Computed example of a mutant assay.
Amino acid sequence: MQAEKDRLEIDYKLDIPPAGNVTKPVVFILGWAGSKQHDLSQYSSFYGEKGYTTVLYTLPTDMMFLLSASVVGDIKDISKRIYGILKDNNLCGRPVIFHVFSNAGAMLYRWTSEVFLEKHVSIVGVVMDSCPSRLELSVGLKAIYFVKRQEGIIPYLSYLGRFVSNGVKSRMDGNWNEEVDVYQELKSSASSIWSHLFLYSTNDGVIPSSHILEIADSRKVAGASIVKTVNFEDSVHVSHFKKYKEKYIDECQKFASDCWKQFQDNSKQ
């Protein structure tokens, strides 16, 4: 039991700005596969300067690429631990905004948002950077290359083999079900009608922009309060901030402000 507990301990970072507004939303920044806390801190900084508390966390890479029904169970447990961050730090009364990257962030967001709704946490918005996409083989292969390319050809090919083998084995063993298909879950969700900001590029290189726009359209149909898409056109996967820093920050800060204002207005009714 202790080994299982330790295996699912989460390594997160909580940033509370010194002059933070104690009623503003908490921003959960959920990273892309392979991202580190120092990668996510640059995003935390521009939220922090506006008084938002942030939580930074990235799902383990294997949980993204070696997916199965049993791994989904582990992700659900991690989602409950992420809720515990709110509880342990007396933040449960605060509204929440998610800022998620790539399919790893989108996957964790899908389950964490469900836990938050069960616990009556007010989710007021989500920023989706370079996500989500359908779980297609071509997307998986490109994503693994994106994450593993700097490790060298041998480690890359080895991990590629594990990815393909896991996919085949999971389906043969019946360890694959509808819950694994996060894209369809997000597309058909009747509950996620909070505000959405999609930051993408037609030159992403990993995820087709058509997948992202399909989800955006589904949120409009579902009745989401705000649905905005921003096409950076030539920046690559999860690199829109790096190439268009000022525009990226402006879009995110304005979106967070709009979500916060809308929550305040609804609270007065």
Rank of each mutant, 00 (worst) to 15 (best):
A69N: 14
F98E: 04
D258E: 14
A222H: 11
V139N: 00
K228Q: 15
K169H: 08
K187V: 05
E179Y: 09
C131P: 02
K119S: 06
L66V: 07
D234Y: 02
K142R: 12
D6R: 12
Y200D: 00
F198G: 02
I85T: 03
F198H: 03
K220P: 05
L8C: 09
I193P: 10
C252H: 12
W111E: 11
V236N: 11
K80M: 07
F241L: 15
K24P: 00
K13P: 01
G51H: 00
T23K: 04
K187L: 14
E179L: 08
T23Q: 04
H237Q: 00
A33P: 10
V127G: 06
T229S: 14
E214S: 11
K36C: 08
K148Q: 15
L197K: 09
N177K: 08
K80S: 09
Y109N: 07
I207P: 01
S225Q: 14
Q42L: 13
I97A: 01
I212G: 01
T112N: 07
K268N: 09
H196G: 04
K247I: 13
L141A: 15
Y47C: 00
P208Y: 02
S130C: 13
Y43L: 10
K247F: 02
R110E: 12
L108M: 14
P60I: 06
R134C: 07
T229N: 10
Y248F: 15
R219Q: 14
K5D: 15
V124P: 02
W260L: 00
S218T: 03
K80H: 14
S170N: 10
R149V: 13
S113N: 10
V147S: 07
E136A: 12
K76V: 15
I123A: 07
A216V: 04
Y159R: 15
H196F: 09
G84V: 05
S189Q: 06
N175P: 07
K50Y: 11
G20M: 01
N166M: 12
I10F: 08
I29Q: 02
D62I: 05
G223F: 04
E114N: 13
P132R: 05
P17A: 01
I75A: 07
K24H: 06
F163A: 13
V121Q: 06
Q2C: 09
S122N: 12
